[in-house]
Amino acid sequence: EESQDIKALQKELEQFAKLLKQKRITLGYTQADVGLTLGVLFGKVFSQTTICRFEALQLSFKNMCKLRPLLQKWVEEAD
């Protein structure tokens, strides 16, 4: 059922947002740094506010889903 899928996805997004924040802090990056690095990787800079709202799960579900693969890549590249 679709609502189950969405619930599962939301849970996954929550966990990912936590992971992103932990990783960012561990590596000593600011939210603005992450936004700028996305610009380098994908040619589209994201504001500190956007990263902040992603981490706080304050973006729309659709936006969270759109941003996630980009931030996933950041997490992979950041090591």
Rank of each mutant, 00 (worst) to 15 (best):
Leu59Gln: 00
Thr50Trp: 05
Gln72Ser: 06
Asn63Lys: 14
Leu20Ile: 09
Ala32Ser: 10
Leu71Trp: 07
Asn63Ile: 08
Gln31Asp: 10
Thr49Phe: 05
Leu41Gly: 00
Leu38Gly: 01
Gly43Cys: 04
Thr49Asp: 12
Glu1Trp: 08
Lys66Glu: 13
Lys62Gly: 09
Cys52Met: 15
Glu55Ala: 10
Gln72Cys: 10
Lys21Ala: 05
Thr50Cys: 07
Lys73Gln: 10
Leu9His: 08
Asp33Leu: 03
Arg68Gln: 06
Leu38Trp: 08
Thr50Ala: 07
Met64Tyr: 00
Gly43Glu: 00
Val75Pro: 09
Cys65Ser: 05
Ile6Met: 13
Leu71Asp: 00
Phe16Ile: 01
Ile25Glu: 08
Lys7Trp: 09
Lys73Phe: 03
Thr37Gly: 15
Glu12Asp: 06
Gly43Arg: 03
Arg53Asn: 08
Cys65Tyr: 05
Lys11Gly: 09
Glu1Met: 15
Leu59Ser: 04
Gly43Tyr: 08
Gln4Arg: 10
Leu9Phe: 07
Asn63Leu: 06
Asp5Glu: 06
Val40Arg: 15
Asp33Arg: 11
Glu76Pro: 00
Lys62Ser: 12
Asn63Val: 07
Glu55Val: 00
Gln4Cys: 08
Asp79Ala: 01
Glu12Met: 06
Val45Gln: 12
Leu36Tyr: 11
Thr30Lys: 01
Leu27Ile: 11
Asp33Lys: 14
Ile25Val: 15
Pro69Thr: 02
Gln48Pro: 13
Gln15Asp: 13
Glu14Lys: 15
Gln31Pro: 14
Phe54Pro: 01
Gln31Trp: 13
Val40Asp: 02
Ile6Tyr: 15
Arg53Ala: 11
Gln72Ile: 10
Leu27His: 05
Lys73Thr: 10
Glu1Ala: 08
Leu59Phe: 07
Glu14Gln: 11
Lys73Leu: 07
Glu77Ile: 11
Ala8Glu: 11
Ile25Thr: 03
Met64Leu: 06
Glu14Arg: 13
Leu38Cys: 11
Leu71Gly: 04
Thr26Phe: 15
Gly28Val: 01
Phe61Asp: 02
Leu13Gln: 02
Ser47Val: 00
Gln58Met: 01
Thr50Asn: 02
Glu1Gly: 13
Val45Lys: 13
Gln22Phe: 15
Lys73Ala: 10
Thr26His: 08
Ala32Leu: 01
Leu70Trp: 05
Leu19Arg: 07
Ala32Asn: 09
Gln4Val: 11
Thr30Asn: 00
Asn63Phe: 09
Glu55Tyr: 04
Asp79Ser: 06
Ala32Asp: 00
Ala56Asp: 14
Tyr29Glu: 06
Gly43Leu: 02
Thr37Pro: 02
Leu57Glu: 02
Gln31Ser: 03
Val40Leu: 11
Thr50Asp: 14
Gln58Ala: 04
Glu1Lys: 11
Asp79Ile: 08
Phe61Tyr: 10
Thr49Glu: 14
Thr50Gly: 03
Glu76His: 11
Arg53His: 13
Leu9Ser: 14
Leu27Tyr: 06
Pro69Asp: 00
Val45Cys: 10
Leu41Ser: 01
Asp33Val: 00
Ala32Phe: 04
Ser47Thr: 09
Phe54Asp: 05
Asp5Arg: 11
Thr26Cys: 11
Glu77Trp: 14
Thr37Cys: 01
Leu41Thr: 11
Glu14Ala: 14
Thr49Leu: 05
Leu20Met: 04
Glu77Cys: 07
Glu12His: 11
Glu77Met: 12
Leu59Asp: 03
Val75Ile: 13
Gly39Gln: 04
Leu19Cys: 14
Lys44Val: 05
Glu12Ser: 10
Thr50Pro: 02
Arg53Thr: 06
Lys21Glu: 00
Trp74Asp: 05
Glu1Leu: 10
Trp74Phe: 10
Phe16Ser: 00
Asp5Pro: 13
Leu70His: 04
Glu76Phe: 09
Leu20Gly: 01
Ile51Asn: 03
Gly28His: 15
Gln15Thr: 07
Gly39Arg: 07
Trp74Ser: 02
Val75Lys: 11
Phe61Glu: 01
Cys65Gln: 13
Ser47Gly: 04
Trp74Tyr: 01
Ala56His: 08
Glu55Lys: 04
Gln48Gly: 15
Arg24Ser: 06
Ala32Thr: 11
Ile6Asn: 10
Gln10Lys: 15
Leu13Ser: 01
Ile6Arg: 14
Thr26Ile: 07
Phe61Leu: 12
Ala56Gly: 11
Leu41Asn: 04
Ala17Val: 09
Lys44Trp: 00
Gln15Phe: 10
Glu77Ala: 10
Pro69Val: 05
Val40Tyr: 08
Gly28Thr: 01
Phe46Lys: 09
Lys73His: 06
Gln4Phe: 11
Glu55Ile: 06
Leu71Tyr: 05
Leu67Ser: 03
Ile25Arg: 11
Val40Gly: 12
Thr30Ser: 13
Asp5Thr: 09
Gln31Glu: 15
Glu55Gly: 02
Ile51Pro: 05
Ala78Asn: 01
Val45Glu: 14
Leu9Val: 12
Ala78Val: 14
Leu13Glu: 04
Gly28Gln: 05
Lys62Trp: 01
Thr30Leu: 00
Asp79Pro: 15
Leu59Ile: 09
Phe46Trp: 05
Leu59Ala: 01
Arg53Met: 03
Gln22His: 12
Ser3Thr: 15
Ile6Gln: 13
Gln10His: 07
Thr30Phe: 03
Phe16Cys: 08
Ile6Thr: 14
Leu19Met: 14
Ile25Tyr: 15
Asn63Ala: 12
Ile51Gly: 08
Lys66Gly: 09
Ser3Lys: 08
Ser47Arg: 04
Lys66Cys: 01
Asn63Asp: 10
Glu14Pro: 02
Phe42Gly: 10
Gln4Pro: 10
Lys7Val: 10
Leu67Cys: 06
Asp5Gln: 03
Lys11Ala: 09
Lys7Ser: 11
Leu57Met: 14
Ser3Pro: 00
Arg68Cys: 05
Asp33Cys: 01
Glu76Asn: 14
Lys11Met: 13
Ala32Pro: 01
Leu20Ser: 05
Arg24Cys: 00
Pro69Leu: 06
Glu77Lys: 11
Cys65Pro: 13
Lys21Val: 06
Thr50Ser: 03
Leu71Ile: 07
Trp74Arg: 01
Lys73Cys: 05
Leu67Ile: 08
Leu38Ser: 06
Gln31Thr: 08
Ala56Tyr: 03
Thr37Ser: 14
Thr26Met: 08
Phe42His: 02
Phe61Gln: 10
Cys65Glu: 05
Lys44Pro: 07
Lys11Tyr: 13
Thr37Val: 02
Phe16Lys: 06
Ile6Ser: 11
Lys18Trp: 09
Glu14Tyr: 13
Thr30Gly: 02
Ser60Cys: 05
Leu13Thr: 00
Pro69Gly: 10
Gln58Ser: 07
Lys73Glu: 03
Phe16Glu: 05
Gly43Trp: 02
Phe61Val: 12
Gln22Trp: 05
Phe16Met: 10
Gln10Ile: 06
Gln4Tyr: 15
Tyr29Ala: 05
Ala56Cys: 10
Thr50Tyr: 07
Leu9Thr: 09
Arg24Thr: 03
Pro69Ile: 00
Leu19Trp: 09
Leu27Ala: 02
Lys62Pro: 11
Lys66Gln: 11
Thr26Ser: 15
Phe54Glu: 01
Leu38Arg: 04
Ala56Pro: 06
Lys23Trp: 00
Lys44Gln: 12
Gly35His: 08
Lys21Ser: 09
Ser60Met: 02
Leu70Val: 05
Thr49Gly: 08
Ile25Phe: 05
Lys7Tyr: 10
Leu41Gln: 12
Trp74His: 13
Arg68Ser: 03
Glu76Ala: 10
Leu36Asp: 13
Lys18Glu: 05
Gln72Arg: 07
Leu36Thr: 15
Gln58Thr: 10
Val40Trp: 09
